[in-house]
């Protein structure tokens, strides 16, 4: 089937970007906070989607990179007075190194074992950090940068991460790597005939996801000012990402964006009810898996062909 790409897609995307970019000018402090959270969750969930939705790597251990990236930023900037933006980048770099080390173990596993392997790694890091004097055990660290950035600055950093994550996923999926991954997703037989290449592509995506997740975590903890192992390495992070992507639409580029928006608004709206917020999100996610397993965007695409950003190149054929 030849499908017209959505005509006004660049218009819609451009409008969305301008809206977000000018938010500090016209929005209230509260809106800025929402915008910040939206951008950060969009970046993080985009990465989980890249792994699980496109690369067949079900990760339950994204919190490993969130904690590692966050702690790297906190330590470098608070202990060594390194520029805050450099510290954030350092968090991305150390996350990639961590991912490389992890891959020695977990890339030998597949399916559910991979998922559990990533989770166990995160748990190990949590235990390690909470027993490590250098990072003040479980009590946590305050982020004290030599020149603390303003809220607007942090917001723009978050926006940068959101846009960078989106662009990265888009570019990866439209590259040769993405074609290979999607061929694998659509047809099992293809994957076995391209074993080594697929392995490299998956590893590449895993490292990219680690970098962006680690960097985004840096921005997140600059905003939060305080980092603690039991929060930073908690499975709750991945829980949120899973819900975002399931609700928005797994294996779609727009899914994480839509899901993040719903997640941030819903959890803000429900925050006064405390734990009911997560409870409701759990129920919503289950209902969505049962009635619309492809999520909001996936279902929309199937029913109407609406797609803002197609991972497939123009006028390419739909599989099957």
């Amino acid at each position: 089937m030849i499908r017209e790409p959505f005509k006004y897609r660049w218009l819609v995307l451009g409008a969305l970007f301008i809206l977000l970019a000018t938010l500090p000018v016209w929005g209230s402090d509260y809106m800025l906070l929402l915008g910040l959270l939206f951008c950060l969750y969009a970046a993080l969930s985009q990465m989980w989607n890249l792994l699980t939705g496109y690369s067949g790597l079900l990760s339950l251990g994204q919190q490993a990179f969130i904690g590692f990236g966050g702690y790297t930023m906190a330590v470098t900037t608070s202990y060594y007075n390194i520029n805050i933006w450099l510290s954030i980048l350092a968090g991305g770099v150390t996350s990639v190194l961590l991912a490389l080390f992890m891959s020695l173990f977990i890339f030998r596993m597949s399916g559910i074992f991979f998922a559990i392997g990533t989770w166990i790694f995160a748990e190990i890091l949590m235990l390690w950090f909470s027993n490590w004097e250098y990072v003040k055990y479980g009590t946590g660290l305050f982020v004290k940068p030599p020149n603390p950035p303003s809220m607007t600055m942090i917001y723009y950093a978050a926006l940068t991460m959101g846009v960078a994550a989106l662009a990265t996923v888009y570019l990866i999926l439209r590259s040769k790597i993405g074609l290979g991954l999607m061929a694998m997703r659509d047809n099992e037989a293809v994957s076995s005939s391209m074993g080594v290449e697929i392995f490299r592509s998956k590893l590449f995506c895993f490292l990219v996801a680690a970098f962006i997740t680690g960097t985004t975590a840096g921005v997140l903890y600059v905003f939060q000012i305080f980092i603690q192992p039991y929060k930073a390495f908690a499975i709750d992070w991945t829980v949120s990402l899973v819900f975002i992507v399931i609700i928005g639409g797994i294996g779609t580029i727009e899914g994480p964006i839509v899901g993040s928006l719903i997640f941030v608004l819903l959890s803000q709206y429900l925050s006064e009810y405390g734990h009911i917020s997560l409870l409701l999100l759990g129920i919503i996610a289950i209902i969505i898996i049962l009635v619309a397993p492809k999520g909001i965007m996936g279902t929309l695409q199937e029913k109407t062909g609406f797609e803002l950003l197609s991972p497939r190149r123009l006028f390419s054929e739909e599989p099957g």
Partner: peptide, 22 residues
């Protein structure tokens, strides 16, 4: 597919934890 049942169970896990908390 492996993911849907896994994710449903994950959802149940979160619901239970927060229910117990309440």
């Amino acid at each position: 597919e492996m993911e849907p049942p896994l994710l449903v169970a994950f959802g149940v896990s979160i619901i239970l934890q927060n229910l117990l908390l309440l």
